[in-house]
């Protein structure tokens, strides 16, 4: 009897649990779904107020407009350069710093940790103008390098990486240390491979953040040939809503722009996610 009860209980639990998650997912699918539906609607139909879950008057004119008005490849190329180079550097440098801070006790560790933590509390608005001035002094205005440099490390990522390194079992490190491995070797050969889930997390966050960034491009770049995809789309899609003039951008064009902007992220996501799964095997087959 009790065994039967637990089995029923288990099935019920699994059912309720999955239903709960699917309900949450349903609300989260809505923005993407709505954007897709509107982007494939005709100009006029897309202007109907409210949430749209199915294209009204199916039409490609939203995408056609973007395609004809915007030469998309140059901004796309810029976005890829800035995002990929920026993310690789960011993850590597943050991991290095995170590894150092994960070491037990060395002179200045506490002070350096506080030094890094404080940077996370500074509102960007407070230092926006000074950062612009700094970029100017470095002669980096109007370069992609400025976009790569801004946010090249962050306290957030350092803290995360440090946290992942801390969860590596001490005996693995100890045995490597006995074999005479130095810090760089430990970092590169032992800690990084054991923190794939962590690296995947930080990579994902940074990649998405950089891909979606608009403000730093607007601030640091004047030359339209160095615009990133987000800025080019944003200028096209969100301009002209000011005062007494401005063209009307129909909603299907806006949503087509949004879909184009996030499509690469959705395509990249599964590859990053694989590392979470890989992490499971790594954890179980520790050498």
């Amino acid at each position: 009897m009790p065994r039967f009860a637990t089995r029923v209980g288990n099935t019920l639990f699994v059912f309720v649990n999955v239903a709960f998650l699917l309900l949450i997912c349903a609300t989260m699918i809505i923005p993407l779904w709505n954007a897709l539906a509107v982007s494939f609607s005709s100009n006029l139909a897309s202007m109907q107020p409210g949430i749209q879950l199915w294209p009204r008057h199916f039409s490609l004119s939203g995408y056609r407009t973007i395609w004809s008005v915007l030469a998309i490849w140059k901004p796309f190329e810029n976005s890829v350069i800035v995002t990929v180079v920026g993310t690789v550097l960011h993850v590597l440098l943050s991991a290095l710093a995170g590894y150092a801070l994960a070491q037990p006790r060395f002179p200045g560790r506490r002070a350096l940790t506080v030094f890094i933590l404080v940077t996370m509390m500074i509102p960007f608005e407070a230092i926006m103008i000074p950062v612009y001035v700094t970029m100017q002094q470095l002669g980096l205005l109007n370069t992609l390098a400025a976009l790569i440099l801004s946010g090249m490390v962050s306290g957030f990522s350092i803290l995360l990486m440090r946290n992942f390194f801390l969860s590596i079992p001490g005996d693995i490190l100890e045995s490597a240390r006995i074999d005479g491995a130095g810090h760089f070797r430990l970092f590169w050969r032992i800690c990084l491979p054991l923190s794939k889930a962590g690296l995947a997390t930080v990579t994902l966050f940074e990649f998405v953040g950089r891909w979606n960034d608009i403000l730093s491009t607007i601030l640091f770049v004047n030359d339209p040939s160095k615009y990133t995809l987000q800025v080019a789309l944003n200028a096209l899609v969100n301009s002209g809503d000011s005062m007494s003039s401005g063209e009307l951008v129909t909603n299907n064009v806006k949503m087509a722009g949004i879909v184009i902007a996030i499509l690469p992220l959705i395509l990249v996501y599964p590859f990053v996610q694989k590392y979470f799964v890989k992490g499971i095997f790594l954890g179980s087959t520790k050498e």
């Binding site: 440098l93 290095l96 710093a97 200045g108 030094f115 407070a126 230092i127 001035v133 700094t134």
Partner: peptide, 24 residues
């Protein structure tokens, strides 16, 4: 080696965060 590992991050924060902060 630990200081070397922290160097890029610290340099970045000094130039891109603390120096602008002082300016602010």
């Amino acid at each position: 080696p630990l200081y070397l590992m922290l160097l890029p991050a610290i340099a970045y924060f000094v130039i891109m965060t603390y120096y602008p902060l002082a300016h602010a």
